[in-house]
């Protein structure tokens, strides 16, 4: 973030990755939604974007590249963001993403670690995209579920961000590659607070539990768990597949919002009423300086 004047600050983010779905147009949409999320999570409004593209032009049909960029451009249009340029290089593997610039009032920036004891945690999208995408690679997911999950990944976090701006929100982050608990650990670490998660309340994509129980889990989930295992204490009753899902790396996941207890139910209701149907209260911030996450 960069403060330009007393009432204007710039937010700049960048994110890109390799294809996670087969359809190039949808991949472009997902990459754009994912790149925009950072700005939304910080309480900002994205304004402009630039494409970052790596493409094997010598071996692959250029129409694929066109569809990817078209998907990204359409998503930007939906978000009312202007595409002002970009850069493409030749590479063996396709990569696409965007650098996004947004604006925010300097007093309204949402930090990750500004947690307050007593706050409640709300998550706006169900988890499990990593497991589902692994099951897709294993050819075990119905076309219907695969489509549903790719739409979920392509969904902007704009509505969630717009709605939370009217409530007493202390901190927010978007859930991506580190998984739900990995990103919560980022918020908790250095905050002087701890968090408690009610795993039964965490929204999960239908079918993801079954695939997780079968071992269709991306390696990233294990790495995420390994990285944060000192901070996370699981109750014995939490099933292994749920633990796996809580660390499952997400693509273009939801917002994880820390909101004042007295605003919590109203925010949850406003989100549900405002098109963020999966939003749910999944835990709370507790007054414990050990900076741990307990999961029941």
């Amino acid at each position: 973030m960069y403060r330009i004047s007393e009432n204007l600050a710039l937010i700049q983010t960048v994110d890109f990755f390799t294809p996670i779905v087969d359809d190039p147009y949808r991949f472009g949409q997902i990459a754009a939604a994912n790149a925009l999320s950072d700005v939304y999570a910080m309480g900002g409004t994205p304004k402009t974007a630039m494409n970052l593209v790596a493409f094997p032009a010598s071996t692959m049909d250029l129409s694929i590249l066109r569809k990817i960029i078209e998907g990204g451009a359409d998503k930007l249009q939906e978000a009312e963001v202007v595409l002002i340029g970009g850069h493409t290089i030749e590479d063996k593997e396709i990569k696409y993403g965007l650098s996004v610039t947004g604006v925010v009032h300097p007093d309204r920036v949402l930090a990750k670690k500004n947690l307050r004891p007593g706050d409640r945690l709300i998550l706006t999208k169900p988890i499990g995209t990593g497991v589902i995408n692994t099951a897709v690679k294993a050819d075990m997911v119905s076309a219907h579920l695969a489509e549903e999950v790719s739409l979920l990944m392509a969904a902007l976090n704009r509505d969630g961000a717009r709605i939370m701006a009217d409530f007493d929100v202390s901190a927010c982050t978007d859930v991506t590659g580190f998984g739900l608990l990995g990103h919560l650990a980022e918020m908790v670490s250095g905050s002087g607070c701890s968090a408690r998660i009610n795993s039964a309340r965490v929204p999960v994509i239908p079918g993801a539990e079954e695939f997780a129980a079968m071992g269709l889990i991306p390696a990233g989930a294990y790495n995420n768990w390994e990285f944060r295992k000192q901070m996370v204490i699981f109750d014995q009753a939490v099933p292994r597949m749920v633990k796996d899902l809580l660390f499952d790396p997400q693509t273009s996941g939801g917002l994880l919002i820390s909101v004042c207890d007295s605003h919590c139910q109203d925010l949850a209701a406003a989100l549900k009423g405002g098109g963020v149907a999966s939003a749910d209260v999944i835990g709370e911030i507790v007054d414990n300086r050990q900076e741990i996450i307990s999961v029941v």
């Binding site: 129980a213 079968m214 071992g215 269709l216 889990i217």
Partner: peptide
Amino acid sequence: DNPSAQQNVLRFLES
């Protein structure tokens, strides 16, 4: 050849 695959096969066989 890697611990993640080992964990996944463990889960599959147990299931």
